[in-house]
Design a protein around this nucleic acid. Sequence first.
DNA 1: CGTGAACTTGAGATTTCTCAAGCGGGGTGG
DNA 2: CCACCCCGCTTGAGAAATCTCAAGTTCACG
Lengths: 238, 238
Amino acid sequence: MSGRFIASLEVYGRLSATEREALGALVGANRAVAAGKDIVCAGQATSECHLLLSGQAFRHRTLADGRRQIMSYHVAGDLIDVQGLFLSLDYSVGALTACEVAPLSRARFEDLVWRYPNLGRALWRYSLVEGAIFREWMVGMGRRTAYARIAHLLCELVTRFEAVGLARNGRYRFPLTQTHIADSLGLSNVHTNRVLQALREDGLIDYRGRELVVLDWQGLRAAGEFDPDYLHMGAAAA
Amino acid sequence: MSGRFIASLEVYGRLSATEREALGALVGANRAVAAGKDIVCAGQATSECHLLLSGQAFRHRTLADGRRQIMSYHVAGDLIDVQGLFLSLDYSVGALTACEVAPLSRARFEDLVWRYPNLGRALWRYSLVEGAIFREWMVGMGRRTAYARIAHLLCELVTRFEAVGLARNGRYRFPLTQTHIADSLGLSNVHTNRVLQALREDGLIDYRGRELVVLDWQGLRAAGEFDPDYLHMGAAAA
DNA sequence: CGTGAACTTGAGATTTCTCAAGCGGGGTGG
DNA sequence: CCACCCCGCTTGAGAAATCTCAAGTTCACG
Protein backbone atom coordinates (compact mmCIF):
# COMPACT_ATOMS: atom_id res chain seq x y z
CA MET A 1 0.00 0.00 0.00
CA SER A 2 1.15 3.44 0.86
CA GLY A 3 3.49 2.27 3.60
CA ARG A 4 6.44 3.07 1.42
CA PHE A 5 5.13 6.60 0.86
CA ILE A 6 4.72 7.18 4.55
CA ALA A 7 8.19 5.89 5.24
CA SER A 8 9.57 8.12 2.54
CA LEU A 9 7.82 11.14 4.02
CA GLU A 10 9.04 10.26 7.48
CA VAL A 11 12.55 10.86 6.27
CA TYR A 12 11.49 14.49 6.04
CA GLY A 13 9.63 14.74 9.35
CA ARG A 14 8.32 12.47 12.08
CA LEU A 15 4.59 11.75 11.76
CA SER A 16 2.00 10.84 14.35
CA ALA A 17 -0.16 7.70 14.22
CA THR A 18 -3.19 9.77 13.24
CA GLU A 19 -1.29 11.38 10.43
CA ARG A 20 -0.04 8.07 9.20
CA GLU A 21 -3.56 6.73 9.22
CA ALA A 22 -4.98 9.73 7.39
CA LEU A 23 -2.31 9.31 4.75
CA GLY A 24 -3.10 5.66 4.31
CA ALA A 25 -6.76 6.47 3.75
CA LEU A 26 -5.87 8.75 0.86
CA VAL A 27 -5.02 6.10 -1.61
CA GLY A 28 -7.76 5.36 -4.13
CA ALA A 29 -8.13 2.80 -6.87
CA ASN A 30 -4.70 1.63 -7.91
CA ARG A 31 -3.62 1.43 -11.50
CA ALA A 32 -1.02 -0.84 -13.06
CA VAL A 33 1.29 0.44 -15.79
CA ALA A 34 3.49 -1.77 -17.94
CA ALA A 35 7.20 -1.09 -18.26
CA GLY A 36 7.88 1.33 -21.08
CA LYS A 37 4.47 2.98 -20.98
CA ASP A 38 3.80 6.51 -19.70
CA ILE A 39 2.05 6.80 -16.37
CA VAL A 40 1.00 10.39 -16.94
CA CYS A 41 1.47 12.60 -19.99
CA ALA A 42 2.57 16.18 -20.46
CA GLY A 43 -0.17 18.73 -20.92
CA GLN A 44 -2.65 17.19 -18.54
CA ALA A 45 -4.23 19.46 -15.94
CA THR A 46 -5.81 16.83 -13.81
CA SER A 47 -6.18 18.30 -10.34
CA GLU A 48 -4.79 15.05 -9.08
CA CYS A 49 -1.39 13.55 -8.63
CA HIS A 50 0.03 10.07 -8.42
CA LEU A 51 1.80 8.12 -5.77
CA LEU A 52 4.14 5.43 -7.03
CA LEU A 53 3.29 2.30 -5.04
CA SER A 54 5.72 -0.08 -6.67
CA GLY A 55 8.23 -0.10 -9.51
CA GLN A 56 10.56 2.57 -10.81
CA ALA A 57 9.72 5.53 -13.01
CA PHE A 58 11.30 8.59 -14.61
CA ARG A 59 10.12 12.04 -15.59
CA HIS A 60 10.95 13.10 -19.09
CA ARG A 61 10.13 15.52 -21.81
CA THR A 62 10.24 14.31 -25.37
CA LEU A 63 10.41 16.92 -28.10
CA ALA A 64 8.71 16.63 -31.46
CA ASP A 65 11.85 15.44 -33.27
CA GLY A 66 12.58 12.70 -30.76
CA ARG A 67 15.11 14.44 -28.57
CA ARG A 68 14.37 13.43 -25.01
CA GLN A 69 15.44 14.83 -21.67
CA ILE A 70 15.00 12.79 -18.54
CA MET A 71 14.67 14.88 -15.39
CA SER A 72 14.46 12.51 -12.47
CA TYR A 73 14.08 8.93 -11.35
CA HIS A 74 11.53 7.67 -8.87
CA VAL A 75 10.89 4.71 -6.64
CA ALA A 76 7.97 3.39 -4.65
CA GLY A 77 6.85 6.03 -2.20
CA ASP A 78 7.53 8.99 -4.48
CA LEU A 79 4.93 11.47 -5.61
CA ILE A 80 5.68 11.73 -9.28
CA ASP A 81 3.56 14.68 -10.37
CA VAL A 82 2.58 17.00 -7.53
CA GLN A 83 2.57 19.76 -10.10
CA GLY A 84 -0.57 18.18 -11.54
CA LEU A 85 -2.46 19.26 -8.42
CA PHE A 86 -2.27 22.89 -9.41
CA LEU A 87 -0.75 23.35 -12.85
CA SER A 88 -0.70 21.60 -16.18
CA LEU A 89 2.18 19.16 -16.48
CA ASP A 90 5.23 20.12 -18.50
CA TYR A 91 6.58 16.58 -18.46
CA SER A 92 5.52 12.97 -18.77
CA VAL A 93 6.34 10.16 -16.39
CA GLY A 94 7.42 6.87 -17.89
CA ALA A 95 7.45 3.49 -16.20
CA LEU A 96 10.96 2.09 -16.09
CA THR A 97 9.72 -1.22 -14.75
CA ALA A 98 6.16 -2.43 -14.29
CA CYS A 99 4.56 0.06 -11.90
CA GLU A 100 1.56 0.44 -9.71
CA VAL A 101 0.29 3.93 -8.96
CA ALA A 102 -2.42 5.40 -6.79
CA PRO A 103 -4.17 8.61 -7.83
CA LEU A 104 -4.60 11.21 -5.09
CA SER A 105 -7.27 13.84 -5.52
CA ARG A 106 -6.36 17.43 -4.91
CA ALA A 107 -9.21 18.05 -2.52
CA ARG A 108 -8.33 15.21 -0.18
CA PHE A 109 -4.67 15.92 -0.49
CA GLU A 110 -5.08 19.56 0.46
CA ASP A 111 -7.41 18.70 3.29
CA LEU A 112 -4.65 16.58 4.75
CA VAL A 113 -1.91 19.13 4.34
CA TRP A 114 -3.81 21.92 6.04
CA ARG A 115 -5.12 19.74 8.81
CA TYR A 116 -1.81 18.13 9.73
CA PRO A 117 0.96 20.72 9.59
CA ASN A 118 3.54 18.08 10.38
CA LEU A 119 2.60 16.27 7.27
CA GLY A 120 2.51 19.44 5.25
CA ARG A 121 5.97 20.30 6.47
CA ALA A 122 7.29 16.87 5.53
CA LEU A 123 5.84 17.32 2.09
CA TRP A 124 7.32 20.77 1.86
CA ARG A 125 10.76 19.43 2.69
CA TYR A 126 10.23 16.65 0.19
CA SER A 127 9.68 19.16 -2.59
CA LEU A 128 12.65 21.25 -1.50
CA VAL A 129 14.88 18.22 -1.79
CA GLU A 130 13.49 17.56 -5.22
CA GLY A 131 14.50 21.07 -6.22
CA ALA A 132 17.98 20.49 -4.83
CA ILE A 133 18.33 17.39 -6.99
CA PHE A 134 17.29 19.32 -10.08
CA ARG A 135 19.95 21.92 -9.35
CA GLU A 136 22.58 19.26 -8.85
CA TRP A 137 21.73 17.85 -12.27
CA MET A 138 22.06 21.32 -13.76
CA VAL A 139 25.54 21.66 -12.32
CA GLY A 140 26.42 18.34 -13.87
CA MET A 141 25.06 19.10 -17.31
CA GLY A 142 26.54 22.55 -17.35
CA ARG A 143 29.91 22.05 -15.78
CA ARG A 144 30.95 18.42 -15.66
CA THR A 145 32.47 16.16 -18.29
CA ALA A 146 30.57 13.15 -19.60
CA TYR A 147 32.75 10.88 -17.47
CA ALA A 148 31.98 12.80 -14.28
CA ARG A 149 28.31 13.17 -15.13
CA ILE A 150 27.81 9.44 -15.58
CA ALA A 151 29.77 8.62 -12.45
CA HIS A 152 27.68 11.16 -10.57
CA LEU A 153 24.38 9.78 -11.81
CA LEU A 154 25.36 6.26 -10.84
CA CYS A 155 26.37 7.46 -7.38
CA GLU A 156 23.07 9.22 -6.93
CA LEU A 157 20.98 6.27 -8.04
CA VAL A 158 22.84 3.81 -5.87
CA THR A 159 22.69 6.10 -2.85
CA ARG A 160 19.00 6.86 -3.19
CA PHE A 161 18.00 3.33 -4.06
CA GLU A 162 20.07 1.85 -1.30
CA ALA A 163 18.03 3.93 1.12
CA VAL A 164 14.84 2.21 -0.01
CA GLY A 165 16.32 -1.27 -0.29
CA LEU A 166 16.62 -1.44 -4.06
CA ALA A 167 20.39 -1.54 -3.92
CA ARG A 168 22.62 -3.34 -1.46
CA ASN A 169 26.37 -3.01 -1.05
CA GLY A 170 26.66 -1.03 -4.25
CA ARG A 171 24.85 -3.78 -6.15
CA TYR A 172 21.77 -2.67 -7.99
CA ARG A 173 19.41 -4.48 -10.35
CA PHE A 174 19.67 -1.82 -13.00
CA PRO A 175 16.59 -1.12 -15.10
CA LEU A 176 17.98 1.78 -17.15
CA THR A 177 19.25 1.31 -20.67
CA GLN A 178 22.28 3.24 -21.84
CA THR A 179 19.87 5.44 -23.75
CA HIS A 180 18.18 6.38 -20.48
CA ILE A 181 21.52 7.43 -19.08
CA ALA A 182 22.31 9.40 -22.22
CA ASP A 183 18.96 11.17 -22.14
CA SER A 184 19.39 12.01 -18.48
CA LEU A 185 22.72 13.70 -18.99
CA GLY A 186 22.43 15.31 -22.39
CA LEU A 187 24.74 12.85 -24.14
CA SER A 188 24.47 10.67 -27.22
CA ASN A 189 24.06 6.98 -26.59
CA VAL A 190 27.22 6.19 -28.50
CA HIS A 191 29.30 8.42 -26.29
CA THR A 192 27.57 7.12 -23.20
CA ASN A 193 28.50 3.63 -24.21
CA ARG A 194 32.16 4.51 -24.58
CA VAL A 195 32.32 6.34 -21.29
CA LEU A 196 30.70 3.41 -19.50
CA GLN A 197 33.42 1.24 -20.93
CA ALA A 198 36.01 3.62 -19.59
CA LEU A 199 34.42 3.44 -16.15
CA ARG A 200 34.64 -0.34 -16.37
CA GLU A 201 38.24 -0.28 -17.56
CA ASP A 202 39.11 2.04 -14.70
CA GLY A 203 37.75 -0.56 -12.33
CA LEU A 204 35.06 1.69 -10.89
CA ILE A 205 32.01 -0.29 -11.89
CA ASP A 206 30.92 -3.53 -13.39
CA TYR A 207 27.89 -3.33 -15.57
CA ARG A 208 26.82 -6.44 -17.42
CA GLY A 209 23.50 -8.00 -17.98
CA ARG A 210 21.03 -5.94 -16.09
CA GLU A 211 22.99 -5.41 -12.94
CA LEU A 212 25.20 -2.57 -11.85
CA VAL A 213 27.97 -3.24 -9.35
CA VAL A 214 30.04 -0.47 -7.85
CA LEU A 215 33.54 -1.91 -7.50
CA ASP A 216 35.26 1.18 -6.13
CA TRP A 217 32.92 3.48 -4.32
CA GLN A 218 35.50 6.07 -3.35
CA GLY A 219 36.82 6.15 -6.88
CA LEU A 220 33.38 6.54 -8.42
CA ARG A 221 32.52 9.23 -5.93
CA ALA A 222 35.68 11.14 -6.71
CA ALA A 223 35.20 10.74 -10.45
CA GLY A 224 31.71 12.19 -10.21
CA GLU A 225 32.53 14.80 -7.57
CA PHE A 226 29.63 13.24 -5.74
CA ASP A 227 28.75 14.69 -2.36
CA PRO A 228 25.44 13.30 -1.08
CA ASP A 229 24.63 16.39 0.99
CA TYR A 230 22.24 17.69 -1.62
CA LEU A 231 20.04 14.63 -1.17
CA HIS A 232 19.41 15.72 2.43
CA MET A 233 18.83 12.13 3.39
CA GLY A 234 18.86 13.01 7.07
CA ALA A 235 16.51 15.90 6.45
CA ALA A 236 14.17 15.19 9.37
CA ALA A 237 16.92 16.29 11.73
CA ALA A 238 17.33 19.73 10.20
CA MET B 1 8.21 47.30 0.86
CA SER B 2 6.82 43.90 0.28
CA GLY B 3 4.17 45.11 -2.13
CA ARG B 4 6.08 43.56 -4.97
CA PHE B 5 6.15 40.22 -3.15
CA ILE B 6 2.44 40.28 -2.55
CA ALA B 7 1.80 41.14 -6.17
CA SER B 8 4.06 38.34 -7.26
CA LEU B 9 2.24 35.86 -5.03
CA GLU B 10 -1.09 37.08 -6.29
CA VAL B 11 -0.14 35.80 -9.69
CA TYR B 12 -0.41 32.37 -8.11
CA GLY B 13 -3.60 32.92 -6.13
CA ARG B 14 -5.89 35.76 -5.13
CA LEU B 15 -5.29 36.95 -1.54
CA SER B 16 -7.61 38.64 0.96
CA ALA B 17 -6.89 42.00 2.60
CA THR B 18 -6.07 40.27 5.89
CA GLU B 19 -3.64 37.96 4.18
CA ARG B 20 -2.00 40.82 2.41
CA GLU B 21 -1.64 42.65 5.68
CA ALA B 22 -0.20 39.66 7.50
CA LEU B 23 2.32 39.25 4.73
CA GLY B 24 3.34 42.85 4.94
CA ALA B 25 3.96 42.53 8.66
CA LEU B 26 6.41 39.70 8.06
CA VAL B 27 9.19 41.79 6.73
CA GLY B 28 11.94 42.55 9.23
CA ALA B 29 15.01 44.73 9.15
CA ASN B 30 16.06 45.19 5.56
CA ARG B 31 19.59 44.68 4.39
CA ALA B 32 21.35 46.28 1.42
CA VAL B 33 23.74 44.24 -0.71
CA ALA B 34 26.09 45.75 -3.28
CA ALA B 35 26.12 44.46 -6.86
CA GLY B 36 28.52 41.58 -7.22
CA LYS B 37 28.32 40.48 -3.59
CA ASP B 38 26.58 37.35 -2.37
CA ILE B 39 23.33 37.83 -0.50
CA VAL B 40 23.42 34.38 1.08
CA CYS B 41 26.08 31.70 0.88
CA ALA B 42 25.95 27.96 0.31
CA GLY B 43 26.15 25.82 3.42
CA GLN B 44 24.16 28.05 5.68
CA ALA B 45 21.33 26.47 7.68
CA THR B 46 19.68 29.60 8.84
CA SER B 47 16.06 28.76 9.53
CA GLU B 48 15.22 31.89 7.69
CA CYS B 49 14.84 32.95 4.11
CA HIS B 50 15.08 36.16 2.18
CA LEU B 51 12.67 38.20 0.19
CA LEU B 52 14.21 40.28 -2.55
CA LEU B 53 12.76 43.78 -2.17
CA SER B 54 14.61 45.48 -4.98
CA GLY B 55 17.27 44.69 -7.52
CA GLN B 56 18.06 41.53 -9.45
CA ALA B 57 19.84 38.44 -8.20
CA PHE B 58 20.89 34.97 -9.32
CA ARG B 59 21.41 31.62 -7.65
CA HIS B 60 24.66 29.93 -8.39
CA ARG B 61 27.02 27.28 -7.26
CA THR B 62 30.72 27.90 -7.63
CA LEU B 63 33.03 24.91 -7.45
CA ALA B 64 36.48 24.96 -5.91
CA ASP B 65 38.28 25.36 -9.24
CA GLY B 66 36.17 28.30 -10.32
CA ARG B 67 33.61 26.53 -12.50
CA ARG B 68 30.29 28.18 -11.84
CA GLN B 69 26.74 27.17 -12.61
CA ILE B 70 23.96 29.72 -12.42
CA MET B 71 20.56 28.21 -11.71
CA SER B 72 18.04 31.00 -11.80
CA TYR B 73 17.49 34.73 -11.95
CA HIS B 74 15.35 36.71 -9.56
CA VAL B 75 13.61 40.04 -9.33
CA ALA B 76 11.97 42.07 -6.60
CA GLY B 77 9.22 40.04 -5.03
CA ASP B 78 11.00 36.71 -5.30
CA LEU B 79 11.87 34.49 -2.37
CA ILE B 80 15.43 33.56 -3.17
CA ASP B 81 16.16 30.82 -0.64
CA VAL B 82 13.05 29.14 0.76
CA GLN B 83 15.18 26.04 1.13
CA GLY B 84 16.99 27.82 3.95
CA LEU B 85 13.83 27.54 6.06
CA PHE B 86 14.27 23.80 6.40
CA LEU B 87 17.53 22.62 4.89
CA SER B 88 21.07 23.83 4.50
CA LEU B 89 21.59 25.73 1.28
CA ASP B 90 23.31 24.03 -1.64
CA TYR B 91 23.73 27.28 -3.52
CA SER B 92 24.62 30.91 -3.04
CA VAL B 93 22.65 33.90 -4.22
CA GLY B 94 24.57 36.72 -5.84
CA ALA B 95 23.40 40.27 -6.34
CA LEU B 96 23.34 41.14 -10.03
CA THR B 97 22.55 44.77 -9.29
CA ALA B 98 22.43 46.55 -5.95
CA CYS B 99 19.80 44.71 -3.94
CA GLU B 100 17.71 45.13 -0.86
CA VAL B 101 16.52 42.04 0.97
CA ALA B 102 14.28 41.33 3.92
CA PRO B 103 14.91 38.29 6.11
CA LEU B 104 11.84 36.23 7.02
CA SER B 105 12.02 33.99 10.04
CA ARG B 106 10.84 30.44 9.71
CA ALA B 107 8.54 30.62 12.70
CA ARG B 108 6.60 33.61 11.44
CA PHE B 109 6.61 32.33 7.93
CA GLU B 110 5.17 28.97 8.93
CA ASP B 111 2.62 30.58 11.16
CA LEU B 112 1.35 32.47 8.16
CA VAL B 113 1.26 29.53 5.83
CA TRP B 114 -0.74 27.36 8.16
CA ARG B 115 -3.09 30.12 9.21
CA TYR B 116 -3.92 31.30 5.72
CA PRO B 117 -4.30 28.35 3.36
CA ASN B 118 -4.82 30.69 0.42
CA LEU B 119 -1.44 32.11 1.00
CA GLY B 120 0.10 28.72 1.51
CA ARG B 121 -1.40 27.54 -1.73
CA ALA B 122 -0.05 30.56 -3.61
CA LEU B 123 3.36 29.80 -2.19
CA TRP B 124 3.01 26.18 -3.13
CA ARG B 125 2.22 27.11 -6.72
CA TYR B 126 5.11 29.52 -6.68
CA SER B 127 7.53 26.74 -5.82
CA LEU B 128 6.00 24.41 -8.41
CA VAL B 129 6.62 27.00 -11.09
CA GLU B 130 10.18 27.33 -9.89
CA GLY B 131 10.60 23.59 -10.37
CA ALA B 132 9.15 23.85 -13.87
CA ILE B 133 11.72 26.50 -14.75
CA PHE B 134 14.53 24.27 -13.50
CA ARG B 135 13.31 21.47 -15.70
CA GLU B 136 13.09 23.75 -18.70
CA TRP B 137 16.72 24.73 -18.16
CA MET B 138 17.65 21.07 -17.97
CA VAL B 139 16.04 20.44 -21.33
CA GLY B 140 18.03 23.31 -22.74
CA MET B 141 21.36 22.24 -21.36
CA GLY B 142 20.81 18.63 -22.30
CA ARG B 143 19.18 18.87 -25.68
CA ARG B 144 19.56 22.27 -27.26
CA THR B 145 22.43 23.85 -29.16
CA ALA B 146 24.26 26.86 -27.78
CA TYR B 147 22.40 29.09 -30.23
CA ALA B 148 18.99 27.82 -29.10
CA ARG B 149 19.94 27.88 -25.45
CA ILE B 150 20.96 31.51 -25.53
CA ALA B 151 17.89 32.51 -27.52
CA HIS B 152 15.75 30.63 -25.02
CA LEU B 153 17.34 32.28 -22.01
CA LEU B 154 16.86 35.73 -23.49
CA CYS B 155 13.24 34.94 -24.23
CA GLU B 156 12.67 33.77 -20.69
CA LEU B 157 14.30 36.79 -19.11
CA VAL B 158 12.44 39.27 -21.26
CA THR B 159 9.13 37.51 -20.69
CA ARG B 160 9.51 37.26 -16.94
CA PHE B 161 10.95 40.71 -16.51
CA GLU B 162 8.36 42.29 -18.73
CA ALA B 163 5.75 40.93 -16.33
CA VAL B 164 7.27 42.92 -13.47
CA GLY B 165 7.98 46.05 -15.48
CA LEU B 166 11.73 45.57 -15.89
CA ALA B 167 11.44 45.15 -19.63
CA ARG B 168 9.18 46.97 -22.05
CA ASN B 169 8.55 46.16 -25.70
CA GLY B 170 11.40 43.70 -25.74
CA ARG B 171 13.76 46.34 -24.41
CA TYR B 172 15.56 45.42 -21.24
CA ARG B 173 18.26 47.19 -19.25
CA PHE B 174 20.48 44.14 -19.16
CA PRO B 175 22.59 43.58 -16.05
CA LEU B 176 24.12 40.22 -17.04
CA THR B 177 27.61 39.95 -18.44
CA GLN B 178 28.33 37.43 -21.17
CA THR B 179 29.98 35.35 -18.49
CA HIS B 180 26.70 35.20 -16.60
CA ILE B 181 25.00 33.89 -19.71
CA ALA B 182 27.77 31.36 -20.24
CA ASP B 183 27.58 30.14 -16.66
CA SER B 184 23.82 29.83 -16.88
CA LEU B 185 23.92 27.60 -19.92
CA GLY B 186 27.05 25.54 -19.45
CA LEU B 187 29.04 27.34 -22.15
CA SER B 188 32.42 29.04 -22.29
CA ASN B 189 32.36 32.80 -22.43
CA VAL B 190 34.23 32.79 -25.73
CA HIS B 191 31.61 30.65 -27.39
CA THR B 192 28.83 32.65 -25.80
CA ASN B 193 30.32 35.77 -27.30
CA ARG B 194 30.38 34.29 -30.78
CA VAL B 195 26.84 33.00 -30.57
CA LEU B 196 25.60 36.38 -29.39
CA GLN B 197 27.22 37.88 -32.43
CA ALA B 198 25.41 35.38 -34.59
CA LEU B 199 22.11 36.34 -32.97
CA ARG B 200 22.90 39.94 -33.78
CA GLU B 201 23.89 39.18 -37.34
CA ASP B 202 20.70 37.24 -37.79
CA GLY B 203 18.81 40.35 -36.79
CA LEU B 204 17.17 38.75 -33.77
CA ILE B 205 18.59 40.99 -31.06
CA ASP B 206 20.62 44.08 -30.52
CA TYR B 207 22.88 44.00 -27.56
CA ARG B 208 25.20 46.90 -27.02
CA GLY B 209 26.14 48.86 -24.00
CA ARG B 210 24.07 47.48 -21.18
CA GLU B 211 20.80 47.16 -23.00
CA LEU B 212 19.19 44.23 -24.70
CA VAL B 213 16.70 44.86 -27.48
CA VAL B 214 14.73 42.08 -29.07
CA LEU B 215 14.42 43.03 -32.73
CA ASP B 216 12.54 39.96 -33.94
CA TRP B 217 10.51 38.33 -31.22
CA GLN B 218 9.05 35.58 -33.37
CA GLY B 219 12.46 34.78 -34.74
CA LEU B 220 14.08 34.64 -31.32
CA ARG B 221 11.26 32.52 -30.00
CA ALA B 222 11.59 30.07 -32.84
CA ALA B 223 15.37 29.96 -32.52
CA GLY B 224 15.08 29.10 -28.84
CA GLU B 225 12.04 26.83 -29.18
CA PHE B 226 10.59 29.08 -26.52
CA ASP B 227 7.08 28.30 -25.35
CA PRO B 228 6.18 30.35 -22.27
CA ASP B 229 3.70 27.78 -20.94
CA TYR B 230 6.20 26.46 -18.43
CA LEU B 231 6.31 29.85 -16.72
CA HIS B 232 2.62 29.43 -15.85
CA MET B 233 2.23 33.18 -15.81
CA GLY B 234 -1.54 32.92 -15.59
CA ALA B 235 -1.25 30.34 -12.82
CA ALA B 236 -3.91 31.82 -10.54
CA ALA B 237 -6.56 30.73 -13.00
CA ALA B 238 -5.53 27.08 -12.98
C1' DC C 1 15.58 -20.43 -35.27
C1' DG C 2 14.02 -15.58 -36.34
C1' DT C 3 13.55 -11.02 -34.64
C1' DG C 4 14.19 -6.85 -32.33
C1' DA C 5 16.16 -4.10 -28.90
C1' DA C 6 20.25 -2.95 -26.67
C1' DC C 7 24.88 -2.72 -26.97
C1' DT C 8 29.35 -2.16 -29.49
C1' DT C 9 32.76 -0.51 -32.81
C1' DG C 10 34.77 2.48 -36.44
C1' DA C 11 35.59 6.80 -38.65
C1' DG C 12 34.85 11.27 -40.05
C1' DA C 13 32.30 15.65 -38.98
C1' DT C 14 30.85 19.35 -35.62
C1' DT C 15 30.46 21.76 -31.85
C1' DT C 16 32.51 23.74 -28.32
C1' DC C 17 36.69 24.56 -25.54
C1' DT C 18 41.19 26.46 -24.30
C1' DC C 19 44.85 29.42 -24.67
C1' DA C 20 46.46 33.71 -25.93
C1' DA C 21 46.33 38.26 -27.27
C1' DG C 22 44.26 42.81 -28.32
C1' DC C 23 40.67 46.34 -27.70
C1' DG C 24 37.76 49.76 -25.20
C1' DG C 25 35.46 52.22 -21.80
C1' DG C 26 34.72 53.62 -17.07
C1' DG C 27 36.60 54.43 -12.68
C1' DT C 28 40.36 55.89 -9.71
C1' DG C 29 44.56 57.58 -7.84
C1' DG C 30 47.90 60.98 -8.57
C1' DC D 1 42.60 66.59 -15.62
C1' DC D 2 45.20 62.80 -17.09
C1' DA D 3 47.25 58.26 -17.06
C1' DC D 4 46.58 53.85 -15.80
C1' DC D 5 44.24 49.74 -14.90
C1' DC D 6 40.80 46.42 -14.75
C1' DC D 7 36.99 44.16 -16.43
C1' DG D 8 34.29 42.80 -20.05
C1' DC D 9 34.22 42.16 -24.83
C1' DT D 10 36.35 40.49 -29.13
C1' DT D 11 39.26 37.82 -32.32
C1' DG D 12 42.28 34.01 -33.95
C1' DA D 13 43.77 29.36 -34.13
C1' DG D 14 44.55 24.85 -32.73
C1' DA D 15 42.80 21.13 -29.55
C1' DA D 16 39.46 18.34 -27.30
C1' DA D 17 35.04 16.51 -26.45
C1' DT D 18 31.22 14.89 -28.33
C1' DC D 19 28.11 13.83 -32.24
C1' DT D 20 26.38 11.47 -36.35
C1' DC D 21 26.15 7.89 -39.45
C1' DA D 22 26.62 3.26 -40.43
C1' DA D 23 27.37 -1.39 -39.64
C1' DG D 24 28.04 -5.44 -36.77
C1' DT D 25 27.23 -8.21 -32.48
C1' DT D 26 24.79 -10.22 -28.65
C1' DC D 27 21.16 -11.87 -26.18
C1' DA D 28 16.48 -12.52 -24.55
C1' DC D 29 12.24 -13.99 -26.18
C1' DG D 30 8.62 -15.78 -29.02
